[in-house]
Write a protein that binds this DNA or RNA. Sequence first.
DNA 1: TAGAACGTTTGAAATATATTAAATATTGAG
DNA 2: CTCAATATTTAATATATTTCAAACGTTCTA
Lengths: 165, 165
Amino acid sequence: MTNCQEDFIDTLVDDLSNIVASLGINRVAGQLYILLFFSQEPLSLDEMTKRLKISKGHVSTNIRALERWNAVRKIWVKGSRKDYYEANCDTLKIILIQLKLGLNQRFDELDKIINNGKNKIESIKKNNTQESIEVTLDFEKKIKQVEKMEKELRRLLDALKFFPF
Amino acid sequence: MTNCQEDFIDTLVDDLSNIVASLGINRVAGQLYILLFFSQEPLSLDEMTKRLKISKGHVSTNIRALERWNAVRKIWVKGSRKDYYEANCDTLKIILIQLKLGLNQRFDELDKIINNGKNKIESIKKNNTQESIEVTLDFEKKIKQVEKMEKELRRLLDALKFFPF
DNA sequence: TAGAACGTTTGAAATATATTAAATATTGAG
DNA sequence: CTCAATATTTAATATATTTCAAACGTTCTA
């Protein structure tokens, strides 16, 4: 591979991984994915280590995270004992699946918190002073507002599947 | 305010701020917003400091971040020189506006990177060997793929405004 | 206009996260 | 099976982030 080709990819790796990192995704995972995305051939851990100038362990850990997300896959290369990887280039699908997974987890947590809140409101209602009635009314209103927001967000997330990609 | 009311809110602040923090938003900003969201009265910096058991400076810095996001507003309380704040309870709108802002910024960066890449491809093409032709074809294909993905994501983001909230 | 009551900034300390090099475990060609 | 080539884990180090206390600046009141 000529030098200007590697330069082309390396520049993209640097620039694009900045965006990835700014979105809260591990920078090294981003670098690895981008490197593989633009490479014409699968790369071994050693090659990735050399290209990104980071430690072998670091590459190993992060490539397996990418594997878990189905963002890269291991490729068998005859006559070599090394693990080679190539990118799954369906980037948008990977992003949306991960997004959905992450948000659904949070929604489930939120459900627990909301139920907890509702139970507490019931028990406050038992100490049935005039003051407590007013206060619980307000709490109830606000908990319902949170519930409504969650419902809307769930619906929004669900609607992604109708989007014509 | 009775103790069980403060307890009710404090528990929600703890639980919900975990979700907020797990989404990459500053935990203290989350705590402040949630505290104000469930409080029936505007709170002063001192009150927030006491409730969250964090330093005054910390509250000050984070409440102003929330103000910038239009997530809280300063309230004038007659006869007090303190700044009081209340939550803007339209949480979903706040989230979506911030999301849109953040992503549009990234899209603009991405545009620059893509253009850069295209220019580089043109200059590689000048060294017009058989090898370079094959390689640039592949680079072009992949850059186009990135472009397509950005277009789809922009469209998706834009479609939010048609969603019936 | 001085002093008190605030809010903000700052620089240092604590904490969390990322990164590495080296030790350990695993694998597959011979 | 064995051993050398790989991959993974780990424990330490470096780096980044969060947090605080104290200094500073501002504003209102008397």
